[in-house]
Nucleic acid binder design. Structure first.
Lengths: 214, 214
DNA sequence: TTCCAAAGTGAAGGATTCTTCAGATATGCT
DNA sequence: AGCATATCTGAAGAATCCTTCACTTTGGAA
């Protein structure tokens, strides 16, 4: 837990129901402002205004702007990690090709479900503790994928953690490209097929009966 | 050219030699501040101070802070694009396996040459026109790689642009992971081998004599 | 050596943003 | 109804930061 972690944690937990609503509204507003005005202009006042409340309410739950943004980011990253973990669970024991397509489909669904929100959060993940949260998500996903790979009946991975980390980040790259709008025309149309092909090919290089690949 | 592009361009070009030095010093200082203090605290005054000059000098060449950061980022992205283009040129006509390792090695060399600088610039690439610059670099690289793939003797790519975009961003993902320090222990040691394996497998899925793979 | 343009200086105005806190309201229990 | 507590409000102080510009210094051509 880094030194700044303490100052990034929520200030107090909602007790009554209306405060839970307030926090939820705050999160939604933060994302909306992030999308419409960008990270720089995602100010504490603007978020409160968008949420239809006063700044004071915001500071009742978060000690500062970054804590709010961190909370929003964490929620998103947790959703992603949950989705991948679930996919890993469902794919247990299946052959490589199935793992690849299942993972890609699951990942794309959760990431492309709210494209604008996903895009807006990339910026948040850059600074102020976003790295720690991203690392945490990474760790969860790598752990789940490692276990999955180890259970594959038709392959043997000498370093499942390494393979998982490379595999997942290799999927994340193109998705980021798409979300950020830096991709060529028609990128989205074939993305899923291409990622499945990519992951399948990578994983199958570890197929039994194909040598260690080295 | 977006609306803000004009305000992000340098203000005036260096004429005398000492001004060229000033600009170079400014760039170096910006990167140092970026590394040591982070994007938020990479302020116009701090950069000038680090560069050993007054703020006024900075504003002589850049209309605002973002223009300076954009210039620094652009230089880095151009270097990356140059490196990949050069690699593509040198690999012309070679078999798939050679292309894969050549591209990976070239990309890693330029990106990992100055790890701290590369890392610091990720944040800059997020906001203020960084996307446009990244897109430009992407376009250059995809163009070069597409031509290279089309020239491969042992494969037939039905959509070289798509394949190149996926391939490059798939390499960029793990590299970002490493640079951001969110990777598992020992990640760096095997990264090159793993990326070569990844890219080779992906490209070879288009090998002649292996079907179109759809 | 003389002189003009290039380059550099840095204090200060203008504009935001963050965050606090004393007071006003709302809620739910007795 | 009455009370204790949970929430909410929003003006204002404190802290930065951005950017300008009138002035000084340096470079080099005539």
């Amino acid at each position: 837990m880094s030194a700044i972690a303490a100052t990034l944690k929520p200030r107090k937990a909602p007790i009554q129901e209306r405060s839970a609503t307030t926090v939820a509204t705050l999160h939604a507003a933060a994302i909306q402002v992030l999308i419409k005005d960008g990270l720089d202009r995602c100010t504490t006042t603007r978020v409160a205004e968008r949420a239809g409340m006063s700044v004071g309410s915001l500071y009742q739950y978060y000690p500062n702007r970054d804590a709010l943004l961190a909370a929003v980011l964490e929620k998103h990253l947790d959703a992603v990690a949950d989705a991948v973990e679930r996919a890993c669970h469902d794919l247990e024991g299946m052959p490589l090709a199935s793992l690849a397509s299942g993972l890609v489909i699951g990942f794309l669904r959760v990431k492309l479900g709210d494209p604008e929100g996903s895009k807006a959060l990339y910026g948040v993940a850059e600074g102020r503790g976003g790295g720690d949260l991203a690392a945490k998500m990474q760790a969860r996903i790598v752990a789940a994928m490692s276990a999955l790979l180890a259970s594959a009946p038709d392959a043997r991975f000498d370093d499942p953690v390494m393979t998982s980390a490379v595999a997942f980040s290799a999927l994340a790259g193109p998705v980021r490209l798409l979300l950020k709008g830096e991709a060529p025309a028609g990128f989205q149309d074939d993305l899923q097929d291409q990622l499945i092909r990519l992951l399948t090919a990578y994983l199958q290089s570890y197929s039994v009966g194909r040598g260690t690949g080295r």
